[in-house]
């Protein structure tokens, strides 16, 4: 690990499904303590990019670098690489057959070799932080969407990953519940977490992100500080996209 290399480096990543090219050569860096927001219309490849970074998809070209190490190489054990990353999915993906506590302690205990006591203590702290200290024994099906998503975030944080990936974490939630999840993410960002997130919440991206990247047609079209990309975009495609968002009353 070298100090000057970014936590995450995406280099010319290409991903195709069948004949369709979803990512057409994406380049992106995320540095330590940086929060990067990916914006773009549905189908622009935001989620696919996050899945590629987490090595859940085979790349068709390009590289994923974690702390300067190429983890997309087929000779590298993806499970080892994933230990440094946490991902939160759009539709929570909690394990319905496990209690909230077991969902959170699973990876620390089974993958990272933490003892049950330590894992449960850490889980209790995390649940406290996400405001669900009293729901440790509940099962996911008995929680609201916002609560489930906060548990999912706690699960991803349980082994203190260097990089947190958030895949449209609020798009399956109703507006009332969006607030509780966003304030949690805001707090994580304030604590210096390194975060790469795909989001439809432009106002949120503007407040929290250090950098906003606009994805279109499988490429990063525009990238920069939120005031610039969201306030005075250079590229015509970005302007079109933002105009549509403003017309829909979402900025």
């Amino acid at each position: 690990m070298t100090t000057d290399s970014p936590v995450l480096g995406v280099r010319g990543v290409v991903k195709r499904y069948g004949g369709q090219t979803v990512l057409a050569g994406v380049d992106l860096d995320v540095h330590e303590h940086e929060v990067v927001a990916l914006i773009g219309s549905s189908g622009s490849g935001k989620s696919t990019l996050l899945r590629c970074v987490n090595l859940l998809e085979d790349l068709d070209d390009g590289r994923i670098l974690l702390d300067g190490v190429d983890v997309s190489d087929p000779r590298v054990d993806a499970d080892v690489a994933r230990r440094g990353m946490g991902i939160v999915f759009q539709s929570f993906n909690l394990f319905p057959h496990m209690s909230v506590l077991d969902n959170i302690t699973l990876a620390p205990r089974v993958v990272h070799g933490v003892s049950r006591e330590d894992a449960e203590q850490r889980a209790a702290e995390l649940l406290e932080r996400v405001g669900l200290a009293d729901r440790a024994g509940s099962y996911p099906d008995n929680l609201s969407g916002g609560q489930q998503q906060r548990v999912a975030i706690a699960r991803a944080l349980a082994y203190s990953p260097r990089l947190l990936l958030l895949d449209e974490v609020t798009s399956a939630l109703d507006p009332e519940l969006v607030g509780e999840v966003l304030s949690l993410v805001r707090e994580l960002a304030a604590h210096g977490r390194t975060i790469l997130m795909a989001t439809h919440e432009m106002g949120f991206a503007r407040q929290v992100a250090d950098r906003v990247c606009f994805l279109d047609g499988g490429r990063v079209i525009e990238s920069g500080p939120p005031e610039q990309v969201l306030g005075s975009p250079v590229h015509e495609r970005t302007r079109q996209f933002l105009r549509r968002i403003i017309d829909a009353g979402r900025l």
Binding site: L59, D60, D61, G62, R63, D73, P74
Partner: peptide
């Protein structure tokens, strides 16, 4: 792949071979 082959980098070619 060979059907959709547009421009495959040297790196990817080596990975596929591996």
């Amino acid at each position: 792949r060979s059907r959709a082959e547009v421009t495959v980098s040297e790196l990817q070619r080596e990975r596929l071979a591996y």
